[in-house]
Computed example of a mutant assay.
Amino acid sequence: MPRLDAITLKQLRALHAVESQGSLTAAAAKIGQTIPAIHSQIRNLENAVGVPVLVRPSSAKRMQLTAEGFEMLLAANRIEGILSQATNQIRARSTGKIGHVTISVVSTGKYFAPNLVKTLSEVDAEIGISLRVGNRESVISDLDEGRCDLAIMGRPPRVPIVHSMPIGAHPHGVILPPDHPFLKVDEFDPTLLVQETFISREQGSGTRILMQRFLDRFGEGPVARIVEMESNETIKQAVRAGLGIAILSLHTVHEELESGRLGLLRGPGLPVVRHWYLVWPSQVERSVAAERIANSIDTLSGTFLPGAVNE
């Protein structure tokens, strides 16, 4: 029977270090402890839960979590998230504010999120606000682990269970090099479009999912060639260089479209308009500060979003 009263933060942090680094030696160097100390923390954790939490398969170079170890790591991440939020609240109150709100935003939102935070800080100076920017998976992790009070994303997750509300239009378009022949026509030929090389973010990203759905409209034709790149900025540069075309949020390319450094495909069904959503965990009651910031974002009615061609 697991003994919850015997589980400590040191043990959970040692487990996290070993999982992330792959070995006791690397974990010890990572968190500034000795190898025997890390080994002792892991052994004590296993004694507390009653089963092994780490194994090293004979064919593997890295130590790996058992199923029970994985559950303990999830718990450790949630505990660290809650503690980081508590620290933010204490720090905010020590400076005379009534509370603190952490907003996690998917990477596409970095083009408007800093100005949004500035506006919110001016509207309600009594509340401290911090911003976390990451890919969709990291924002979902923030929601699941309690590292944020609110999140802004293009598609609310199914897990964890969240509340959400739309806060503004989110148009996407097919971005072209400035000399692309598609720019000379008012309606594109789908059979030619699917022959293009598409430059895209990683599998699972919001724009990748939207791109696949957009291309699926054209039936069973040839599969578009897809080249993955790690950021929207890299994708924009690759399109400008003529390496391919891309489907991107028009909020990310507003300046390039205005200046003519990139072009925008015209035709039926474009741009593809989705929405930005404000999201918060359903299992946690929003604080007074988070409630006020959420109401302020709702009141702004999307006016903080960048303009976009054909939006």
Rank of each mutant, 00 (worst) to 15 (best):
A308K: 01
S164E: 12
D298V: 01
S205V: 02
K61A: 14
R286Q: 10
M63P: 02
V101Q: 01
H100Q: 13
M1D: 13
R213I: 02
G134D: 09
G204L: 09
A238V: 05
S301V: 04
Y277P: 03
I247M: 02
A289W: 01
T197C: 00
I209L: 13
E228N: 12
L305K: 00
L193P: 04
H275L: 13
S296I: 03
E220V: 12
E230W: 03
R78M: 02
S287N: 10
S107L: 01
Q237Y: 05
V55Q: 13
G267C: 10
R62Q: 10
V284I: 13
E311S: 06
I167V: 12
V53M: 14
D149A: 11
E68F: 13
L116R: 04
I82S: 04
A17D: 07
L83I: 08
S200D: 08
P271Y: 04
R78I: 00
A29S: 10
I129C: 13
A26L: 12
G96H: 03
S107E: 08
L45K: 08
R213W: 09
D142V: 09
P36R: 11
S259L: 08
I245W: 00
I82V: 11
L45S: 11
A67E: 15
S23T: 11
E311Q: 05
E187G: 04
H16E: 14
P171S: 06
I140D: 15
R132P: 05
G81F: 07
L264V: 07
A224N: 01
W276E: 03
D189V: 10
G173Q: 02
A92R: 00
G302L: 00
E233V: 07
E137D: 14
R292I: 06
R147S: 15
P271C: 08
R13W: 08
Q203A: 14
G242C: 07
E255L: 07
K30Y: 07
S138G: 11
A17G: 05
E311F: 02
D149I: 08
A169F: 06
R240V: 03
R201W: 01
F214M: 15
R62I: 04
Q21W: 00
A60C: 12
R93G: 08
I161P: 10
S296V: 01
S40N: 15
R217N: 15
A75W: 10
A6P: 07
G146K: 11
M153I: 09
R261C: 06
L305I: 00
S259E: 13
E311H: 04
T191P: 02
G263I: 00
V53W: 12
E68T: 09
E145K: 05
M72P: 06
E233C: 03
R240M: 11
L4N: 10
V227L: 13
E145M: 10
R292E: 08
V18Y: 02
L116I: 07
H172Q: 14
K184R: 12
P157M: 13
L265C: 00
L15I: 06
A6M: 15
E311R: 03
A6L: 15
S107F: 03
V174H: 02
M211F: 04
Q21N: 06
D189M: 08
S94T: 07
G173V: 00
P281S: 11
T252G: 00
S84D: 15
N295M: 05
K97P: 01
L248Y: 03
L83H: 01
V18I: 05
S59M: 08
P166R: 06
V55K: 12
Q203Y: 14
